[in-house]
């Protein structure tokens, strides 16, 4: 039983990690705690329903539609809602993201109605059996895509000029501006990428269960994941996601489903008390 539970936890955690990666990326680049990230997961699920189930687009086009539409939505939100608040307090911006989440939920319910939608895609639904452990092909795919995204972003940040500009912006907006970096554009791209990552998470979650606004709750598990891993850390977001997935599955299997929240948030509290910058984050030092 244990290997099976561990594998399911890692697979589920990979999806949480993907959503957490988007959350961390936005925070790293723009210093904004985006509480609408869970609703971006829902938006991704309904973009998939629109393209795949309603417009009957081929799967490759469905994927392109999700990526492009989610990127445009993320960029538009940054331009219309976040940018005008530059220089305002963190609380104001957090309130905007909470309001955004409520507005997105209402819009989705108006457009798609109250009923959940079934997502039909050609993603695999079978299983591999390895040493008696049943491995869901969909879980494998979700984990694979998550790790691919992690790898691509690691390379992007490490080896591309734009990745370097994003890192520079994250380290200090003023210094980046003085260096000639278009900080506003960098922020917009960060929001677009964060939105796309959440939308891909939404695609997998909708395939695992149903496309509904209730996916927001699952998407918001990215929040403890990213805090545990370290708000500023890209690998930390992924590993935080994996930890949350593992804890959830182990607690559900060996204690009770409800206890999963207790274990996840106890770890969150412990991390905040002992290592507030997260397991993989960097401690910020201020000179006075």
């Amino acid at each position: 039983m244990l290997p099976q539970v561990l594998f399911s936890g890692l697979a589920l955690g990979s999806i949480y990690g993907l959503v957490a990666l988007g959350f961390a990326l936005v925070f790293k680049a723009t210093d904004v705690l985006n509480f609408a990230q869970g609703m971006f997961v829902v938006v991704g699920a309904f973009l998939a329903v629109t393209a795949g189930t309603q417009l009957h687009l081929p799967f490759a086009l469905t994927l392109m539609f999700i990526v492009v539409a989610a990127a445009l939505i993320g960029a538009a939100i940054q331009a219309l809602l976040i940018r005008p608040l530059t220089g305002r307090s963190m609380l104001s911006i957090i309130m905007v993201t909470i309001a955004l989440s409520i507005v997105l939920r209402a819009l989705i319910e108006i457009i798609f109605g109250p009923q959940p939608r079934a997502l039909t895609t050609p993603m695999p639904t079978g299983v591999f059996i390895v040493e008696g452990v049943r491995i869901s092909q969909l879980h494998m795919l979700a984990a694979g895509v998550s790790w691919l995204c992690l790898g691509l972003f690691a390379l992007f940040f490490r080896f591309t000029t734009f990745g370097l500009q994003m890192r520079a912006t994250a380290n200090g907006h003023e210094a980046a501006l003085v260096s000639g970096i278009n900080v506003d554009f960098v922020n917009r791209v960060a929001w677009a990428i964060g939105s796309v990552l959440a939308a891909i998470g939404g695609l997998f979650l909708a395939q695992l269960q149903l496309a509904s606004t209730e996916l927001e709750g699952i998407g918001l598990l990215a929040l403890p994941a990213v805090v545990i891993g370290g708000l500023q850390s890209i690998p930390g977001a992924i590993i935080g996601g994996l930890l949350v997935g593992l804890i959830e599955q182990l607690a559900s299997s060996y204690v009770s489903p409800r206890s999963a929240d207790i274990f996840v948030y106890t770890l969150l509290l412990l991390v905040l008390m002992v290592r507030p910058w997260g397991l993989f984050g960097q401690r910020e030092l201020g000179r006075v």
């Binding site: 099976q4 399911s8 695992l208 599955q249 559900s252 409800r258």
Partner: peptide, 10 residues
């Protein structure tokens, strides 16, 4: 099972 479960392996 949790109301917002994403998996029913357990």
């Amino acid at each position: 099972i949790k109301a917002n479960a994403a998996d029913a392996t357990a």
